[in-house]
Structure formats: structure tokens, C-alpha cells
Design a protein around this nucleic acid. Structure first.
Lengths: 331, 331
DNA sequence: AATTTCCTGCAATGATTGTTGCATTTTTGT
DNA sequence: ACAAAAATGCAACAATCATTGCAGGAAATT
């Protein structure tokens, strides 16, 4: 009996020690606001639903579990209890209070919750730190892209995008400002908006061009500025100037404390974190893509017409390559 | 006793039915070559290591388990046995033959193996197919981006990138051609190459400009063309013209049968698959980013020098915004 | 301050788990 | 074709699992 208990302890300790899926990045943002803000998994939905019926300690317990699913998704009720310093009965009764009949049902949802949170990069991070060949750097670069993109997925405030799109459809003209690397982002956003029937442009060229474009904007227009980190002076000043003249501004940047975030009426963030010297603009592109998709689907009929029209013009003219069989339609 | 057995069966069936992490995409490529080719997880390593000591049926069994970890990683030995129509003892002895002392150790490695294979999108795919609000489309757009990016991760031929980078460093001048949406891609690639000290440019403007640029290229130059699907005529013709004149060509496209893929000396593919009307260029951006990273790391010293130099010029001039505390260094 | 309500830990329950000996079948080597 | 070797299924084992009544304690309500 006594030996029995001891061996059980030993096994559980060993399990806790080795079965963890390697050193994960502990997200610094508070899990509370994150979960409350936008519930995406069935588990989170059930959690905020039953939140009122749950005591404070049970909420704290669940929050801990949901915040680090990568360390909890494979644990048994006993192991989970030991991990958070409670009895296994407490675990079972807590998940029952959430509405689950059996712990297995909760475990199932927890697995799915884990899957939505995890990215391959996060898992490989600790494992593959060799960095010896160029090939490793390439892999690492894509992994970083995946990580940034996944961060965008979980942190992107969809409402902000929807609001932006409403604004876009109401506004008269849209000017997108981006310099250097951000120039290609500005270009693609403006191009996409034009194809969707908006009067948008991304001025390129000398400093004066941008300044003049902004100068003739009014309240009825919209200025979109794209810059990251400390921000390029010209881009930030364009935002400031626009704001002074009551021109609506929307920013795309990579943090809440960047100049762009502070000086724009609204903004969204997309990480450009890099492993190598080169910034990763993948998440930014995804954000821009999301904006365009949202634009298209708020007026789907009009968007389809416009796109079909462009399609027709293209194929009637000689814009497509017509080598032999031309049955494809994508570009 | 009899009732006991029945209830166990019922439970296991229920578990197999509901605990699965939703309908996953079944990759059509044979698991054998995939695992044998490049073992990445400890589990795969142990598998190919003990492969000679394993019988045929046990190999087949393991291959099935490793090929669909998303459906096996949470199963017990008995459930796993039932899933593949064998006895639980067979499962245990098979994993023991691989070198694992306990089934729990194997389960641990299987979880990690699963994590490296899974992507968030793949998991959510079946779960969220509602598509009612604009917010859903936004989420779906990002999920599609993730899927495309993950496809790039698994399918990107790193050697091709390395070869391209070698060529880039040897060549005299690089011209990147991309039209419409691809223009922003071409722009960012050219810009990144310039920052790394290459003589690169992405000609914009009328048709004539591109044609003239290509006309003055020689064997010592490199033409990079970017176009997807059927391909824009102008881009394809640029590749054809260059090839006729023995100018090395490298393509970025989205399939092995596109004109770009057929007419270029070498090429890489990046999916632009879309859920909505708008093509997703995220994977392409990631591919370009990978090229730039590889470029930087084949000559890391030189790249660092160049980037530091640009940094210095930028901060000495008034390119950065200097609102108050300027301790940040990213852009 | 008193009482009700809620929550937690302990202990016990039956079900399920991983594991191994034994007889049988399948595969392998000659 | 035959013998040796390996693998498999069955049955049983102890250990661990999830689950629940019970009693004590914490928090909230009156």
C-alpha cells in the first residue's frame, strides 16, 4: 500500500517531466482578455458560456489550463490535478460544471483547442536549433512566417477590419502610403482595392508626391499608412498631417506602441518578427488579403461583377498567354 | 461479464467516432517515401533505425500510425489496436520492438510527431464551414493563407532555392518581371536583393520597358519571372524571349504545368489557392522571403555589413521618425 | 453573528489501462 | 517441403483511471 502510493507519485512526476511537448513560447498576453474577446474553439465558447456559474478559483483553474494547452492536452485528470495543486475530484467537478458529462469529453475538446493554438514552428523551436546550413535558414524562415501568420490569426481583431471595410465603401478616395519594403504592400492593397471598384492609389516616387497627395485629401477620404517599428519619418508625418486636417487614417503596423498605432484613428497589427536579417512581411500580406476579402464580401454582387468584367477585358484582349489549350482561368 | 464487454465496445466505438480531430485532409503522397526520405521527428528516426529489425506487418502497422497521427496520437494501446484490427498486445510489442520500454514513451513521441505534422487550418477545416458573416470570410482567408504557407513548407525544394542563390551571387544583373498583382512581389524581391548588394531591378510601367530591359540582357544576367496559372502574356513572353537568347531564367509560379514552369530553366512553386475571389499571395511572399534569407546567409558577413550600412545611413539622415525616445531599431 | 450555499479533499468504487505468459498461427530460411 | 523463428491472439494481472458519496471548511447571504 505504502509502496504503491510512492510508485504512483514517481510515475506521475516522471510523466510531468518528460511528456511535455518541449519548451514552448509562453505568450505574455493575459489569457483572460484574449479568451473573453473572441472565443473560437468549442471549449472557449463553453467556458465563457458557463463563466457565470463558475466560482473564482474554478475560473482561474480553467484559465490556466486553456492558456497552456500544449502542456495539458495529454494529461489525465489526476496528472492535471497534481499539476495545479488540487485534487483530481476538483478537476472532474470543474469540467462537469462546464457542462461536460465525462472528463473524456473535456479532454477531447481540449485536444482540439490545443490544435488550434499550436503551430509547427512553435513545436520545432526547441528541437531544431542547429542552424548550420543555408537550408536550415530557409526552413526557419518559413517557420517564422508560419508563426507570424498564426499570431495574426489569433490576435487579429476582425471587427476592426469590418469597420475599415465599411469606411472604405463610404469614402470617396483612398490613398495608401508605404515606403521601402512597405511600398510593395501599399501597392498590392491599392491594386486590390482598384480591382474591387474603389478609387485607391499608392503614390510612389519622391517625397513631394506623397505630401501633395495627402495635402489635397479631405474628411471624405481615407488615408491608409503602412510602417513598422519605429516607423519611417515620411510615413508617420503623412499620418500626422492627415489627422491634423481631420482626414480619417487607418494604420497597418506591428505593435500597439508604434507611432503609426498612436497617430492613426484605427489600426491593425501584424508581426514582422524575423529569425534572420530579413523582416517577414507574410503576416502583413495576409492582413491586406483579409481586408480585400472582407471588401469583396460586403458587396459580393458588385465585386463579382467587377472581377468578371476585368476578366472579360483581359481574355478578349491579348493579356493572357495563349500557348495551346487555354482552358485555365486563374492567373 | 457479457455486459461488461459490450459496454467497452460501445465506449470505444464512440471514442473512435467522436474523439477524432475532425475530418483531416488525407495526403495522397505515399507515407513510405515521405518518411524514409527525411526523418524529422525522433519517432521517425527511431522508426527507420529499427526498420531492419521489424517484420513486414509491423512496419505496415507503424507506417499507418505515423501517416495519420492526427487520428492516433490520443488513442490508448487498446483503441489503437482496435483501429488497425490487431490485438493490443501486438501494439505494445511493436513499439517495444522499436526500442521503447513503455507504451507511454511511444505515445509521448507520437504526440510530438503529430504536432510537427499538424497545422491549425487543417484542424479547423471541417469544424468551421459556416461562411455566414464577413468575419467568417476573414477567418477563412487567413486559414487559407496558413494552408498555402504550410503547403509551401512541405513542398518547397530547398535545393532549388540554394541553387538560385548561387546563381544570384554569380550573376551580373538581375531583372525581376511581374505584372499586376505579381508586380508587388517582383518589387519586394528586387528591393530585397538590392539591399543585399545585388544589381537587381523590377521594371515597371509600359510593356515596352520590360521588353527593352530583357532585350539587353546576356548570358551573364538572370531573369526572374513571376506569374501564376495561365500566366500573363507579357511575362511569359519575356521568359521565352530570354530563353531564346540563352539568358538564364528562374520562375516563381503555382504549378508544374504552368507556362512559367515549362519555359524557365528552373522554378519554384507556391500555391495561391483562394477561398474567396482574391488570390492569396502569402505563400509567394514567404518564398521570396526564403530566397532573400538564403541570399543573406550564403554571404552572411557581407550581408550584415550592407544592412548595417543602410541602417547607419538611415539613422544619420532623417529617415526614421524621431518623436521622443528613439531606442527602437526595427523598421 | 448565524446559516445557508458552495467548494474542496479524502477514500472507495468499478471500469480501463498497460503488460506479460502461453498456445497457436504465420513467416522465414534452407 | 520442412523446421526454426517470429509474430499474433487470448487471458489474466496489477496498476491507474474517472467518478462519486461523505465530511469538513470557505464564502456568501441574511
Amino acid at each position: 500500500m505504502e509502496k504503491n502510493t510512492r510508485s504512483r507519485k514517481a510515475r506521475i512526476q516522471k510523466t510531468n517531466g518528460t511528456a511535455t511537448v518541449a519548451a514552448f513560447k509562453n505568450s505574455s498576453n493575459s489569457a483572460e482578455g484574449q479568451i473573453a474577446a473572441n472565443a473560437q474553439t468549442p471549449l472557449e465558447m463553453r467556458f465563457i458560456e458557463a463563466q457565470t456559474n463558475l466560482g473564482a478559483s474554478r475560473q482561474r483553474l480553467l484559465r490556466q489550463i486553456l492558456a497552456e494547452p500544449h502542456e495539458t492536452f495529454f494529461l489525465s485528470s489526476r496528472e492535471m490535478a497534481r499539476r495545479y495543486g488540487v485534487d483530481s475530484a476538483t478537476i472532474v467537478r470543474t469540467v462537469q460544471a462546464m457542462g461536460y458529462q465525462k472528463f473524456a469529453d473535456f479532454a477531447h475538446d481540449l485536444r482540439n483547442h490545443f490544435v488550434t493554438q499550436i503551430t509547427p514552428y512553435t513545436a520545432m523551436k526547441a528541437a531544431t536549433q542547429k542552424n548550420r546550413s543555408v537550408a536550415d535558414y530557409i526552413h526557419q524562415s518559413i517557420d517564422q512566417d508560419l508563426e507570424n501568420l498564426n499570431a495574426l490569426k489569433t490576435s487579429l481583431d476582425v471587427n476592426k477590419v469590418v469597420e475599415l471595410v465599411k469606411q472604405i465603401h463610404q469614402t470617396r478616395r483612398i490613398v495608401v502610403v508605404g515606403i521601402d519594403f512597405a511600398a510593395s504592400l501599399a501597392m498590392s492593397l491599392a491594386y486590390g482595392l482598384v480591382r474591387l471598384g474603389c478609387d485607391a492609389e499608392a503614390p510612389t516616387g519622391s517625397t513631394g508626391v506623397v505630401q501633395n497627395k495627402v495635402r489635397i485629401m479631405t474628411k471624405k477620404d481615407l488615408l491608409v499608412v503602412i510602417s513598422f517599428g519605429q516607423g519611417l519619418r515620411e510615413t508617420v508625418e503623412a499620418a500626422q498631417r492627415a489627422r491634423r486636417r481631420n482626414v480619417p487614417t487607418f494604420g497597418i503596423t506591428d505593435g500597439d506602441k508604434t507611432p503609426i498605432a498612436r497617430f492613426c484613428d484605427h489600426y491593425i497589427t501584424a508581426s514582422i518578427a524575423r529569425t534572420s536579417f530579413i523582416d517577414s512581411y507574410v503576416a502583413s500580406v495576409a492582413a491586406i488579403n483579409a481586408i480585400l476579402v472582407a471588401c469583396a464580401h460586403t458587396q459580393p454582387k458588385r465585386a463579382l461583377e467587377l472581377l468578371a468584367q476585368t476578366e472579360r477585358e483581359y481574355s478578349s484582349g491579348a493579356r493572357w498567354y495563349q500557348g495551346e489549350d487555354s482552358d485555365q482561368k486563374t492567373r
